[in-house]
């Protein structure tokens, strides 16, 4: 029995694959990415299969997800951000499903890997910067100097604004990755306590081991909330960045 709380984050090869000298093997991480993408697509397609006027359960979920993200984009990114709704929806659904699938014991949580969250955050960063550049051209660079600030503060303000802009993908990716990883590590550590207590204390260990299990029951509920919340935070920040790109303050 593996009691290493980090064992769950290990990448296991399933199908070895090499492409142009890079190891791009299909791994457990890849598998759950595929599962998340299939589930999201499946929900949208199966949910609208009957196109019922009064929705059934699956259709309600699909509509709820659609309207939730739609509302998020409208309220936080503005009406002009409507063309970017599919991207925001994909991000939210992918991260949410990644987080939620990870809550099932024995699965792999690909959002607990910094490289995955950072790639997603970098995608958002590049996309938002491109949107801003295309919409505003060189005027985009005025974003780094808040209008109305005294010109004397420019040498201080501009570097700060540039750094804070460049830090966006870093904070975005680390927030998601750290939350997911910490939660899963914590669950595993408490579960490990039970195993080691039983191993070390015998009959007393069975009793004492119930305590971490009880804590884990509460933590699982908490982690499910975190799984949703972090997907929400990631998406809402994406929306706010899009609003910045559209409006430039």
């Amino acid at each position: 029995m593996a009691t290493d709380p980090l064992h769950q984050f290990r990448i296991e090869q399933i199908v070895p694959l090499h492409l142009a000298g890079h190891d791009v093997s299909f791994t457990n991480s890849s598998l759950y990415m595929v599962v998340a993408a299939v589930l999201v697509t499946g929900l949208l397609v199966a949910g609208t299969a009957s196109r019922a006027l009064v929705p059934g359960r699956l259709q309600s979920v699909a509509e709820l997800l659609y309207e939730f993200v739609s509302g998020m984009v409208r309220d936080n990114a503005g009406a002009q951000a409507r063309p970017y709704f599919p991207l925001v929806f994909s991000i939210f659904a992918f991260v949410l499903f990644g987080n939620m699938i990870g809550m099932i014991p024995g699965t792999f949580t690909f959002t607990s890997h910094i490289i995955v969250t950072f790639t997603l955050a970098a995608l958002v960063f590049v996309f938002v910067t491109l949107v801003a550049l295309i919409r505003h051209g060189f005027h985009f660079f005025s974003f780094f100097f808040p209008s109305g600030a005294p010109i004397a503060l420019a040498p201080i303000l501009i570097p700060i604004e540039i750094i804070s802009y460049l830090m966006r993908p870093v904070s975005l990716s680390i927030r998601l990755f750290a939350n997911m990883m910490a939660g899963h590590t914590m669950l595993k550590v408490f579960a490990g306590f039970t195993i080691t207590m039983i191993g070390a204390l015998g009959a007393v260990g069975w009793l004492a081991g119930a305590v971490p299990v009880a804590i884990n029951v509460a933590l699982i509920g908490f982690e499910i909330m975190v799984a949703f919340l972090q997907a929400y935070v990631f998406t809402i920040l994406t929306c706010l960045y899009i609003r910045d790109a559209i409006e430039l303050h």
């Binding site: 694959l17 299909f26 890849s30 990415m33 992918f94």
Partner: peptide, 20 residues
């Protein structure tokens, strides 16, 4: 593991984006 993760993320997320 980075190359593999980025590669499969691009494939799965890209496909998901197109399908969605």
């Amino acid at each position: 593991t980075f190359a593999s993760q980025i590669f499969w993320l691009a494939i799965t997320f890209g496909t998901l984006y197109v399908l969605v």
